[in-house]
Design a protein around this nucleic acid. Structure first.
Length: 328
DNA sequence: CATCCGTGGCG
DNA sequence: TCGCCAAGGAT
C-alpha cells in the first residue's frame, strides 16, 4: 500500500534509450516510435498501479539502505518473498552493516541463511561484505561496474541495487520483467529460457529517460509480474495494461518452442548436499563423518556431495574425519 | 550456452 | 501425488 520512496541520488550511466540503432536506416514505418509511445503508456499505467498496490516490503522502506536492498536481492535470487522475510529481518538485525558481517566466520552466514536454499549465496554475500569493507570503505558501492565485480552479483543484481538503492537508470531484467515484456510487447506467453540480446535491447528501449522514473518503472514492472502477470493463472482482470497487452489481444496463444526445462531434485546431488548441510547447520561442534553418513545410503554419491561442499567452501574438513561449517 | 546449485508451497 | 515455480550466478 505504501508508495516506496527512492533516494534522490541519480545518475545516468546507462546510454540513453536511443534514437536507436535503426535511426540511420531511414526506415519509413517506425516500429521504435510505436514502442516509444506504447512505452509511455506502460510507464504511466504500471507506475500508477504500483503506487496503489505495491507490497510494503521491508527492503523497500526508506530506511532499508543500500545494504538492506543488497541483502534482499541476494536472498530473493530464486527464493520466494514469504520465505525471505523472516531471515531478512534477523540478518539485518544481526549484521546491520557490511562490516558487521565481514567480521564473522563465513560459516555463520551459512548457518543464518537457514533453509533459504542455494547456500552458496550466503557464502557470496559474506564475500561481498568483506570486499565492500576492504575496497569500498564499508559502503555498498554506487556504480554498476563496482557492484558487478562483487561475488554473487551478476547483471540483474547489479542493476537492481543501483536502481532500487540509488535511484539510477538501468534496465532491471528479472524473470518477472521478462515475462511482462514478453506478453505485453512481444505477444508471447513466456520469454526464452535464457535472456537474449533482443530482450535487453527491448528493455533498454523501454527505459524512461528520467532516472527517477526509470527506477520506479523497474520496481513497478517487476511487481506487476510478481502479483498479476504471473507465470500461471495470470490475473488480466486486475492488470493495468490489459488493453495494451499484445499477448492478450492475440488471444493468449500458448507457449511454442522448447519446453521450459524443469528442475528435477529427488535423488540428485543437490538433495544430498542439502541433507549434509542441514546437519552441519544445526551442529555447534565438529561433526564426525559417521553422523554425516546417515543422511544418504549410497556411498559414492554421498562422498561426491560432501567433496563438492568442501570444494565450494561450504564445509571445512578437520583432522580425524570431522566436519564443520567454515571458520575461514 | 547448458548445467549445476536448495527448498518448500501450491494447484 | 507431483510437476511447476520462486527478484540468478558461476562455470
Amino acid at each position: 500500500m505504501t508508495a516506496p520512496t527512492l533516494p534522490p541520488h541519480s545518475s545516468s550511466d546507462t546510454p540513453a534509450p536511443a534514437t536507436d540503432a535503426r535511426a540511420d536506416t531511414g526506415t519509413p514505418a517506425d516500429p521504435e516510435a510505436s514502442v516509444s509511445s506504447l512505452g509511455r503508456i506502460l510507464h504511466t499505467q504500471v507506475i500508477s498501479w504500483y503506487d496503489a498496490n505495491a507490497r510494503d516490503l521491508p527492503w523497500r522502506r526508506p530506511d532499508a539502505g543500500a545494504w538492506g536492498v543488497m541483502v534482499s536481492e541476494f536472498m530473493l535470487q530464486q527464493t520466494p518473498v514469504s520465505r525471505v522475510l523472516p531471515v531478512y529481518e534477523q540478518w539485518l538485525e544481526r549484521w546491520p552493516r557490511p562490516a558487521d558481517l565481514a567480521k564473522e566466520a563465513p560459516g555463520e552466514a551459512v548457518r543464518a541463511w537457514g533453509r533459504l536454499g542455494y547456500p552458496r549465496r550466503a557464502l557470496r554475500l559474506h564475500g561481498a561484505a568483506v570486499a565492500i569493507t576492504e575496497r569500498h570503505g564499508g559502503d555498498v558501492p554506487t556504480e554498476h561496474a563496482q557492484l558487478l565485480a562483487l561475488p554473487g552479483i551478476g547483471e540483474y543484481t547489479a542493476a537492481a541495487v543501483a536502481s532500487f538503492a540509488y535511484g539510477q537508470r538501468h534496465a532491471v531484467l528479472d524473470t518477472n520483467v521478462r515475462r511482462v515484456l514478453a506478453r505485453a510487447v512481444t505477444g508471447v506467453q513466456y520469454p526464452p529460457n535464457a535472456t537474449t540480446a533482443a530482450e535487453r535491447r527491448l528493455a533498454r528501449a523501454l527505459l524512461p529517460e528520467d532516472a527517477r522514473t526509470a527506477a520506479r518503472w523497474a520496481a513497478a514492472s517487476m511487481e506487476l509480474g510478481a502479483l498479476v502477470c504471473t507465470a500461471k493463472n495470470e490475473a488480466c482482470g486486475r492488470c493495468p495494461i490489459a488493453e495494451h497487452c499484445a499477448w492478450r489481444l492475440a488471444g493468449k496463444p500458448p507457449h511454442e518452442g522448447p519446453p521450459r526445462r524443469g528442475q528435477t531434485y529427488a535423488g540428485t546431488d543437490r538433495q544430498v548436499r542439502g541433507k549434509l548441510l542441514a546437519v552441519l547447520r544445526e551442529a555447534h561442534a565438529p561433526v564426525p563423518q559417521a553422523v554425516l553418513d546417515r543422511v544418504w545410503h549410497e556411498p559414492v554419491q554421498r562422498a561426491r556431495a560432501l567433496d563438492g561442499l568442501v570444494a565450494d567452501g561450504l564445509v571445512e574438513p578437520l583432522p580425524g574425519g570431522l566436519y564443520r561449517l567454515p571458520l575461514t
